[in-house]
Simulated assay, not measured.
Amino acid sequence: MSDEILVGYDGSADATVALNWALDEAERTGRPVRLAYVFEWVTVAGWIGPGVAPGIWPDETARRQVEELVRTAASDAAAARPGLTVHGEVFDGPPALVLEERSAEAGLLVLGSRGHGGFGGLLVGSTAVSVTAHAHCPVVVVRDAAAGPAGRVVVGVDGSPTSLLALGFAVERAAQRGVPLHVVRAWEPAAGGGPAPDGAVAAERAALEEPLAEWREAFPEVEVTVDVVTGRPARALVEASRDAQLVVVGTRGRGGLRGMLLGSAGQQLIQHAHCPVAVVRERRQSRSEK
């Protein structure tokens, strides 16, 4: 597994926004960037893959156009960002599956909110959940209307293992950007409704202090604020994303259903956040490593 930033790229406006976000991240971290265009060959019989007989859709002209698109985008990006290493590559197969497999060799996967051509419908509904839930590395989904650099970094923490991984990812990004970190702990009291007792809120806040202590020591320059609120985590994080440049969550929080690799908060954020969303998970083994 490398530190390379992999970008899902198809030439669409949203893919260009995602690429620019990835290039900014690369300038801060010194990582190389690879543009990945996934060329999906579809017939009435389904995906036929590479090596099809000449004359069967798509023809070689389409393939050459795609390769030229990717070469030009990578070349333009490298010229605009001197000092960065930028490559482009065309892959064959279903976009979600290919990106999942390629993420095993990346440190970060960056996607636009939707695309055209090779990524038609990639981040709509269940496909978005699939890519984000099954990737082998953290995934950032960049929404076109919310790609500005201003604001703090927000992270949702509920004490689950993946939320603690998300906390570490968020602290590091806040330090790189020189911005504050805002930690949100949203929880739903026991059935019956009504405001949570003051003691319960204090206990939830105290539970955050232990994992925060080591990060405060490692990054003393990062200003950290904590907000403990009652209610649905997704709603609290979407609201917090309004004045954020990045919101970070784990793949599945405390109380998640078995087999549900991306929790409801992550799914809601991908669709409704006002800034880019990073979904962090533990390192998964690729099929070649098993």
Rank of each mutant, 00 (worst) to 15 (best):
E204M: 14
E204T: 15
E204H: 14
E204V: 12
E204L: 13
A206S: 12
A206P: 10
A206Y: 09
A206V: 09
A207C: 12
A207D: 15
L208W: 09
L208K: 07
E209W: 03
E209K: 05
E209F: 07
E210P: 01
E210D: 15
E210F: 04
P211F: 06
P211D: 03
L212N: 03
A213Q: 06
A213S: 03
A213G: 06
E214V: 03
E214N: 05
E214R: 08
W215S: 05
W215V: 02
R216W: 00
R216K: 05
A218I: 05
F219P: 04
F219S: 11
F219Y: 12
F219L: 11
F219A: 13
P220E: 05
P220Q: 00
P220I: 04
V222H: 07
V222P: 02
V222D: 02
E223C: 06
E223Y: 10
E223A: 12
V224E: 04
V224F: 06
V224W: 02
V224N: 07
V224L: 05
V224R: 09
T225S: 14
T225Y: 10
V226S: 08
V226P: 07
D227M: 10
D227G: 13
D227W: 13
D227A: 15
V228Q: 07
V229W: 08
V229N: 09
V229Q: 13
V229Y: 08
V229F: 11
V229T: 15
V229G: 05
T230Y: 09
G231I: 10
G231Y: 08
G231S: 11
G231V: 11
R232D: 14
R232P: 11
R232W: 08
R232L: 11
P233T: 09
P233K: 00
P233F: 05
A234D: 03
A234L: 08
A234I: 06
R235K: 10
A236S: 15
A236Q: 13
A236W: 07
A236D: 13
A236E: 11
L237S: 05
V238A: 14
V238N: 07
V238E: 12
V238D: 09
E239G: 14
E239M: 10
E239C: 07
A240T: 09
A240M: 04
A240N: 10
S241F: 02
S241V: 08
R242Q: 15
R242T: 12
D243E: 14
D243P: 00
D243I: 05
D243N: 09
A244R: 06
A244G: 01
A244S: 13
Q245C: 15
Q245D: 10
Q245L: 01
L246V: 00
L246P: 00
V247P: 00
V247S: 01
V247E: 00
V248N: 00
V248Y: 08
V248T: 04
V248F: 04
V249G: 05
V249A: 05
G250W: 01
G250F: 00
T251K: 02
T251Y: 03
G253T: 08
G253Q: 08
G253D: 01
R254M: 15
G255V: 03
G255L: 03
G255R: 00
G256H: 12
G256L: 14
G256Q: 11
G256D: 12
L257C: 05
L257W: 13
R258K: 15
R258M: 13
R258W: 12
R258A: 15
G259C: 09
G259V: 02
M260Q: 14
M260E: 01
L261F: 05
L261N: 04
L261C: 06
L262E: 03
L262C: 10
